[in-house]
Design a protein around this nucleic acid. Sequence first.
DNA 1: TGGGCATCGTACGTACACGAACGATATGGG
DNA 2: CCCATATCGTTCGTGTACGTACGATGCCCA
Lengths: 157, 157
Amino acid sequence: MRSNVARRQPETKPASSPASRPYRIEEQVGYLLRRAHQRASSIFQVTIGDPNITPTQYSSMVKLHEYTELSQNHLGRLVGMDKATMQGVVRRLKERRLVDSRPHPGDARRTLLSLTTEGQRLITKLLVNGPAVSRETLKPLTNQEQRQLLELLSKII
Amino acid sequence: MRSNVARRQPETKPASSPASRPYRIEEQVGYLLRRAHQRASSIFQVTIGDPNITPTQYSSMVKLHEYTELSQNHLGRLVGMDKATMQGVVRRLKERRLVDSRPHPGDARRTLLSLTTEGQRLITKLLVNGPAVSRETLKPLTNQEQRQLLELLSKII
DNA sequence: TGGGCATCGTACGTACACGAACGATATGGG
DNA sequence: CCCATATCGTTCGTGTACGTACGATGCCCA
């Protein structure tokens, strides 16, 4: 198609705006968010202080540290995770004895989650490194740009 | 709440900067990037025009559309994906007959990938919707903010 | 008070994402 | 020419992430 070598400027004129730029995957938000998230995760992994704790496990433990006790569903909503995803995260935390559970007294459908003593100890330790993770991730930006980025990301969630 | 109901201000004084704000998970880049990426992915899924094509499959096909033929490793570098991840993406695209492969003439280690005719047809169709995905994802922002966000994300990758 | 509807947690399937290890091949230096 | 080293693609294991379906339970209201 096109003619001999194919490439550059595929025949999609977006037709939307007249003077629209060519469509480059590297300039699309979704692509940039995926790459940025990749980088942030890898910085987290080497900076947080325990290579076996993942970002989602960390957020879950931080929330449990704040609230003391939460149902699995409620925790999932607080950290922005699907209940199906939450299930796996909680299972792994329980297997490692960082989280414990007991049935909800008044609602037999729910399970109340809380940190074990070891979980408390670990999250207290990891929280010290939390700021360093963000600092390292945002390093390429000036202070003002850092604030801007956080604000813009908040707006599109 | 503020006082007796269990928390706020856990006892971690970050100790780094004197006047540092309390550490809230919702204000950390990594967390915001995860949430933003989630939202972008779900917008992609309902907007791109084929629910069976994922964002990474899409980027891979766009690159193959641009370059005509690429080794698996090279493609992975272009779209920012690990070679192990690439393996699965390519396998699924081949299973659906959207991508084909042939051995590299001069290097027996490599496999050259290209779009099949059906792959060409599909990506040409999906590319029409590409801009709409980004537009929808960036909808909460003004034009200037949109440009800012893209620039800031590029900087931290 | 009972039936319909929502919510909670679980299970299964699919797809990313990456580290680690591996075999095959390529390449450069001695 | 041969070996050390690097690259290419594969496989395995672990951990998100979400849709869908399911059973159990709770709750509202007719």
